[in-house]
Nucleic acid binder design. Sequence first.
DNA 1: CTGAAAGCGCTTACAG
DNA 2: CTGAAAGCGCTTACAG
Lengths: 330, 330
Amino acid sequence: MAGVGIGTVSRVINNHPSVRAETRARVQQAMEHLGYAPNPHARRVAGGRSYTVSVLLPFVATEFYTRLIEGLEATLSEERYDLALFPLITPKRLERYLRSNTLAYQTDGLIVASYDLTEHFVGGQFPTDRPVVLVDARNPNYDSVFMDNFLGGKLAAEYLARFPGELFFITVEEDIDRIFSHTVFAERRAGFQQGAALAGRTVNPDQIFNTRLSAEGGRLALQSFLRHYKLPFNIFAGADLIALGVLEEVERLGLKLGHDVRLLGFDGQPWTAQHGLSTLAQPVEAMGARAAGLLLERLQNRRAEARQVRFEPHLIERASTLGAQVIESR
Amino acid sequence: MAGVGIGTVSRVINNHPSVRAETRARVQQAMEHLGYAPNPHARRVAGGRSYTVSVLLPFVATEFYTRLIEGLEATLSEERYDLALFPLITPKRLERYLRSNTLAYQTDGLIVASYDLTEHFVGGQFPTDRPVVLVDARNPNYDSVFMDNFLGGKLAAEYLARFPGELFFITVEEDIDRIFSHTVFAERRAGFQQGAALAGRTVNPDQIFNTRLSAEGGRLALQSFLRHYKLPFNIFAGADLIALGVLEEVERLGLKLGHDVRLLGFDGQPWTAQHGLSTLAQPVEAMGARAAGLLLERLQNRRAEARQVRFEPHLIERASTLGAQVIESR
DNA sequence: CTGAAAGCGCTTACAG
DNA sequence: CTGAAAGCGCTTACAG
């Protein structure tokens, strides 16, 4: 249809430089018109690349992963890469992804989210020769993009310590998927405790409530704090989802948000704005984009030194810590 | 290594009948020895089949899906099929899975879990010519394997109505992933209400508690019931996970399980046994296996009429409804 | 800059 | 029953 040989079509598809602009345009028009898209299996058989990247991620359906995937995809799709998602459901399945030559794993590279899975393999290396990038996790041997969760907890404590009233922390100790271990909540907790100590504040064990990652857990936490302490409260919820439950319970009990209870979340979910929830925002999409970028670079240059990219959370102040009036007058 | 041509190796791999048993064994030995596994991309390019099946499933990490996947995989792997999991995160992504010819979607068939997604497409048909099987969902135009959730709710009410005290139901109205709608909880609720009515029992609105799918939601539900009603309670939790929270709260409050509070879950999760939780068990693995079987058959015979396979939940009685003593004396 | 040819790792008639 | 050959839909030197 474009009046060219299939080799030229292939060059257009693969962005080969030596194609005349006019020819390239003609071929692209024809592809558009015909709704043609190349067969990725054939591309892999012929060229050794499938233009697909695997993302191994925990089997937990939080907005964090939705946002992370968006970030990954935005960057990868610019280079015409597709991503295939592989929820890590059992260790057996991890083994399968890595060792078998299942279609599933026949991709060009690997992005591993939230786990440093190297501990599962002898020698601390992934049993693969494909490039691997960690995101929301870190390992010195691999490109890593991670959040400084300790700093997040510390910032939370320092910020909340400026207000009158006791400090509280709601955390999640249980492994989110009961299979692979993760450390983000423990890091936030350690940071929180150090921040509180630096501010000269004590945090008793019953000021720390451990629950599961659910809004209802936040409601139970507030109930528990109320049984043992007097208002006002300064609560750092280890996740926005948990903070949402605190908000619900504050409302149900008729307490005054930003006064009786000052509340700080963690994550910076898009919906926190509507709820007036102060939060330590993680630039999740940016982290995903960066991880995708590292993988793309690594695909070009396999030998470069592993890079460690640290992100910091940033404080977003809203009514849940400042009170409604303060916000209005800004 | 086996002293045969590559064509014969291929015949062995594909279970072609006309290979001598002795030759087959020799080839298999060689494959074993070399750790050889065929390249699925090449298989698809050459033979049109990739021996991979896509599973589209909600992005919710419940044990239901873990078990479902196990059931699917057990059956598919017998026929040397692999499965590729595709969490349905956004409608955009659904579109992508179906329309693009991404590697992701270049599989031999489609298993769709928990949603009748046909509503998203004009004509009520999936835009694909590959076989499609629904599981935990139903549509007359496609092979479907589903649970009779209405019956489940009805059985629950009939069973609990035999005990003294009010009837309660804990449900989840919000869509589990906020994106695609599902109906299982509404069906259980409708069945529960009919069962209660048939048993001559009334269920007031405040005897039904709506929460999210979390253990903590069960704890809040029990708190709510206690504010409005007197013990003893007969509670049907729409999911075992929610029942777990009721158990936790019963213990925290020092109530007597199986007496003050009789509790029935739904799902039949493996861990319910340890907790003495009575439950309406869904044979999830069997449903998965059946769905996989239907797909395998459909791969052979594309024209056969769509089959509808209905599963029923079955009651498992334990201490949470019978009390500890009764169990002991059995 | 572009076409024609070889080749990627398989499957499957076609002979024998 | 089995080997040799053609072909699947691409990519990529190799010529021109």
